[in-house]
Design a protein around this nucleic acid. Structure first.
Length: 594
RNA sequence: GGUGGCAUAGCUCAGCUGGAUAGAGCACCUGCCUUCUAAGCAGGCGGUCCUAGGUUCGAAUCCUAGUGCCAUCACCA
């Protein structure tokens, strides 16, 4: 039984027998470092029921607990805080329980309902950048955390493969490309297509300037620039199914997908199911018709269809244009329904999309609720802040973006530089080294991004890059590698890996580590409830800090008492396992050496 | 203007449903490698928790008002 539950009932019993009062609840917190004890009962809230001096109440409850609960060995009271000391035996017993447990903290799938997690969802007219990296890491990590918490998860993305922006790249390629291909140029497909998107913008601006110079009004020039007209015509042709246009569209998108695959693979993210906007953009219209009948929507005189959300403190929102075509919202309604049709066990969805779309998702969820879908209550917008540069916002068209591929290469190079200076891996082959550098470089990047609360905006300074010391991915990876080194030696020393004697006495650092390990399962649940990889990251950091302190203060393999040595080796192993598990949830790998 | 988010040390960030003297890392300054990996450990320096009120035994945390930054309020996606 969990010690806290035991204490909860015992404290209530104590208050009942001592003061004849029934407490509704008891407030616990971990004892702060500077005080003696493990768990603290906060006495203040009891004052409403027990009219006495808090210190006195604490004393009496403390004595009661020592007498009644075997695991409680001592207590002290500071002001209104009753600090309880829990026996070493309790912690050692806990350790024996998890010693051989694989995937400690992870829950086997318990929910029959599945969750679909959407993330990435790029446009196919330009390469992925730092903003997508944050999106991908968050989405992937949340999906993994939900799995670890017992959910069935489908990872998905909706690829925005149609629209005027794609046509812009296509037009520019036709005009300036001279038949360039990824094979011919040696460029990654997404990069090649992205270049033409930039080229379009450049040509467009030049045409506007020329028209304005010829005396055309700026507004008009922006509308009438021939290259824009051409792109618009191309979109109409695409929608009409023009063979040439569709063939070009397929060809160029194909290039982009190949490029994206490389980036995703390097980033270490994946998907169970892909959706393409070209398949879904017409969806949702029948649902709107349905909703019209039910009175959820209403039609205006011009034929457009709206929903009135003023009762919810929001505005009116259009769901179908006057010409009967779908808008963004229509499509998202349709896609959500499509997904549940495809995977009937879906009970909820998570949308990983930037916070600039908070309003959109608020409205979308409300609409789905009003259409009374059973799963509409379980929709979550995993909203995150933008990644800004010191110069401000990233803009693809202006070339002020941090490219995802470039950034990963840079991080790997930095890792390589640091590692080579330290020179600990002389016996590694070149391939082994490269693999490790990538692991460390990406570990630094991923941790840097995931440790921050998703809601917050991230300021990324490419000059200062990302740290490799302190509260960083590499620091945690390093600790893991250190433990592996000990374990290798322990194996050659043939240290026995047997259950520990619960009568043993714990070193304070050992107890500290056991306390931290004990929190891991709850932490996964908490992270899942809050959709927060940051909680996992910060927990892992604390655990590792605790281990390093332990490592520095006590000797593990040098310990002369064989039983104690065995315990320390196994404790280290468990810490490493938890670090590995936690990092798995963040999509970060851990090295055997570094 | 309406709505939403954010504001904690020079910088980057923790701080769970209100609880003890507000915590880390980086930077700066001290120590510690003939001892299990020094990408480490131990310590020092550094804070009107944006401001002003309020609720409470107790507020960085909750409420109100204000300030600053960001986003959003399209028959674009």
């Amino acid at each position: 039984m969990n010690i806290q539950n035991t204490l909860d009932t015992e404290v209530k019993k104590a208050v009942l027998s001592l003061f004849e009062v029934e407490l509704p609840s008891v407030e616990f917190q971990p004892t702060r470092k500077d005080f003696e004890g493990d768990i603290t009962v906060v006495v203040f809230p009891m004052l409403r029921f027990v009219k006495r001096n808090p210190a006195q109440i604490g004393e009496q409850i403390g004595q009661f607990l020592v007498d009644a609960v075997a695991e409680v060995t001592a207590f002290n009271v500071v002001k209104g805080f009753l600090n309880i000391v829990v026996s070493d035996a309790y912690y050692l017993d806990f350790f024996n329980g998890i010693r051989l447990q694989e995937n400690f903290g992870f829950v086997a799938q318990v929910d029959s309902d599945a969750v679909m997690v959407e993330y990435s969802s790029p446009n196919t007219n330009k390469p992925l950048h730092l903003g997508h990296i944050r999106n991908n890491l968050l989405g992937y990590s949340v999906a993994e955390i939900l799995k670890a918490a017992g959910k069935k998860v489908y990872k998905t993305q909706i690829i925005n493969d149609r629209g005027i922006h794609i046509c812009k790249s296509m037009v520019a390629w036709k005009r300036f490309g001279n038949g360039a291909t990824p094979e011919g140029t040696g460029l990654k497909g997404d990069k090649l297509v992205g270049n033409y998107y930039v080229a379009f913008d450049k040509a467009y601006k030049e045409e506007i300037a020329k028209l304005v110079a010829d005396g055309v009004d700026t507004k008009l020039a922006e509308k009438e620039a021939p290259i824009l007209q051409e792109a618009q015509q191309m979109l109409r042709n695409w929608e009409a199914g023009n063979e040439d246009v569709v063939a070009l569209w397929k060809k160029m998108n194909g290039w982009v997908y190949k490029g994206f695959d490389v980036t995703y693979k390097n980033l270490g993210v994946d998907f169970d199911q892909l959706y393409y906007e070209s398949d879904t953009y017409l969806l949702g219209k029948d649902v709107v018709a349905d909703g019209l009948e039910k009175g959820v929507f209403y039609r205006k005189d011009d034929g457009s269809v709206w929903i009135d959300l003023t009762d919810e403190g929001l505005d009116e929102k259009i769901v179908l244009r006057s010409d009967g075509t779908a808008v963004y919202m229509t499509q998202d309604i349709g896609t959500a329904i499509q997904r549940v049709n495809d995977y009937p066990d879906i009970g909820g969805m998570v949308y990983t999309v930037g916070n600039e779309q908070d309003y959109h998702f608020k409205v979308l969820f409300l609409i789905l609720k009003k259409l009374s879908f059973s799963w509409a209550g379980q929709l979550h917008h995993l909203s995150y802040g933008m990644v800004d540069l010191p110069s401000g916002k990233m803009k693809s068209r202006e070339g002020t973006v941090v490219d995802a591929d470039d950034l990963m290469v840079e991080m790997t190079q930095t890792a390589a530089k640091i590692s080579e200076e330290l020179g600990k891996l002389e016996d590694y082959s070149e391939t082994e080294k490269q693999q490790l550098y990538k692991m460390i470089g990406l570990g630094a990047l991923k941790y840097y991004i995931l440790k921050v609360d998703p809601k917050k905006r991230i300021l990324f300074d490419p000059e200062e890059s990302v740290d490799f010391q302190g509260n960083t991915g590499p620091f945690i990876q390093y600790t893991y590698a250190r433990i592996q080194s000990i374990l290798r030696k322990a194996e050659s020393m043939e240290v026995p890996m047997t259950a520990v004697d619960t009568n043993a006495e714990l070193h304070p650092k050992e107890k500290e580590l056991l306390k931290q390990l004990r929190q891991f399962p709850e932490l996964i649940q908490l992270a899942a409830e809050n959709f927060s990889p940051a909680l996992i990251a910060n927990y892992t950091y604390d655990l590792v800090k605790g281990f390093n302190s332990f490592y520095q203060q006590v000797s593990i393999l040098g310990e002369t008492d064989e039983e104690r040595k065995s315990f320390r080796v196994q404790l280290s192993k468990k810490v490493a396992e938890v670090v590995e598990s936690a990092f798995l949830l963040l999509g970060i790998q851990v090295p055997e050496r570094m």
